[in-house]
């Protein structure tokens, strides 16, 4: 009931709020930037980040991404890309695309960390909601592969280490 109410509220906000968009890795992704206070306490798909918060809703096959205005501007494209990919996991018609991206990403990331698949597996095993955690790992792998292609080696290594330590 509470979740349904939240869904309706966010659906309404999505329809009236001025949306922003970002092109990340060829995807044009729309999102709403909301005050942090409006996002807190919601029961959607929720992820915490170092400097803000992001929530995704996917009613009627529309991926609605809401992010906190406190989100770190230097990593905002990765945050949004991650949430978008996580949303795509739930869309049947995009499954082949997402799973192919995941497989390519894992191949690419093994250059830096040969045990990355093992770390993902461990994180899935210890979570109660294994399906949700798997979607998170899929999105994280694809996000990290994009970061690898855009960042210099040292910066990416720090980004990767932080992601594996703080976000699994």
């Amino acid at each position: 009931m509470r979740f349904q109410l939240h869904k309706k509220i966010y659906h309404f906000i999505w329809s009236i709020w001025k949306k922003k968009s970002l092109v990340v890795n060829g995807y044009c992704i729309s999102y709403c930037e909301l005050p942090w206070m409006l996002l807190i306490g919601s029961k959607g798909s929720k992820s915490w980040f170092q400097n803000g918060m992001c929530i995704t809703y996917i009613p009627d096959q529309t991926i609605m991404i809401f992010i906190s205005s406190k989100e770190n501007p230097s990593t905002i494209s990765y945050t949004i890309y991650h949430e978008y990919i996580e949303g795509l996991c739930s869309l049947k018609q995009r499954e082949v695309e997402v799973s192919s991206l995941f497989l390519q990403a894992m191949e690419s990331l093994k250059e830096y960390d040969s045990n990355i698949g093992g770390q993902f597996m461990k994180s899935v095993e210890k979570k109660e909601d294994k399906t949700q955690q798997s979607c998170h790992c899929i999105a994280l792998a694809i996000e990290l592969a994009l970061a690898k292609s855009e960042m210099d080696s040292d910066k990416f290594r720090a980004y990767l280490e932080n992601a594996l330590l703080e976000r699994l």
């Binding site: 499954e95 082949v96 799973s99 995941f102 894992m106 597996m121 798997s134």
Partner: peptide, 12 residues
């Protein structure tokens, strides 16, 4: 097919 790709990317 999506599940197969997911398993192929994970360890174990």
């Amino acid at each position: 097919s999506g599940s197969a790709r997911f398993l192929a990317g994970m360890e174990g």
